[in-house]
Write a protein that binds this DNA or RNA. Structure first.
Lengths: 151, 151
DNA sequence: TTGCCTGCAAAGTATTTGCAGTCCC
DNA sequence: GGGACTGCAAATACTTTGCAGGCAA
């Protein structure tokens, strides 16, 4: 059984490659590289950030966009929207989803595992909606940036 | 006292014009037109949708963008992000904020006055963040679109 | 071998900016 | 009259698409 939520990055990597193959997609160097970054580093990352993290000259930025689309379609990655016109991607462990706390000054991202919106989705279903999902992002100034601002 | 939350659209319009003037901005035909739409129609609207709703030839699309920026800066409008790469704007009544339920099929938007995220913001403040805000959008398939799909 | 994947170039989409002329206050 | 506002054109930023060649399976 595939375990995308494994603690070990390599295990998540292997599980992802298997999912990719089973979905009828090919395993190529750029895709391997992207999954390597996504499974082992703390994201989410923009397409440009991901491209920079790949070995120099591994692929064209366009390939990053195309690979991310493929990975998103089979739910290996999740697309995030911080409202600044740039899409960011993070590895999807398949576990209970989480939300982000983004510092407006330095852009650092922390995860928040609690999700208060479950009740809200239930409410919306009662209003007659189906296939309910939601996006929730939290913004603020982190402790570090507050300290800097106060000199 | 200005009453942006007034029931009467004209009252909200007048209150908005006063806010605009007090903030040192000029009252021009395009701005009047935009506020007319925003205070009287149910949004949110993209810049393009707003431009289409203005009297034919009233202003250039660029002016819509610039005016919206000005209105947003003084909190007369609020910018929404539905994650599709297009920003939408709605009149800000200044009351307790609400969230949207967007139908993925037809794009219709309903408001949800309940906000479950207050507790979440509190939690994040306890984690050391200041000036905490959040964005929350809910997506689903509305009852009408479900009926059509089942045809 | 097949056809999915890639690189390069170009197009697309939403939004922003420069500058000269306009008009609100 | 002065400075904010506007129109037009061009630039910007991110992402997508077309097409010919390359490579995984």
């Amino acid at each position: 059984m595939m375990n995308h939520a494994a603690q070990d990055p390599e295990e998540r990597m292997e599980a992802s490659l298997e999912t990719l193959r089973k979905a009828g997609h090919r395993i190529t160097a750029p895709r391997r590289g992207l999954l390597k970054v996504l499974t082992s580093e703390h994201g989410p990352f923009s397409a440009e950030e991901l491209h920079k993290r790949l070995p120099q000259g591994m692929c064209d930025p366009v390939t990053v966009y195309r690979s991310l689309s493929a990975l998103e379609e089979i739910d290996l990655v999740r697309r995030c929207d911080f409202g600044d016109g740039i899409y960011r991607y993070e590895f999807n462990t398949g576990e209970h989803h989480h939300h982000h706390i983004i510092c407006r000054k330095c852009g650092s991202v922390n995860n928040l595992d609690v999700c208060f919106a479950d009740g809200l989705e239930r409410l919306v279903r009662q209003m007659g909606y189906a296939n309910v999902t939601h996006t929730l992002e939290i913004f603020g100034t982190c402790a570090g940036c507050q300290a800097i601002a106060q000199g």
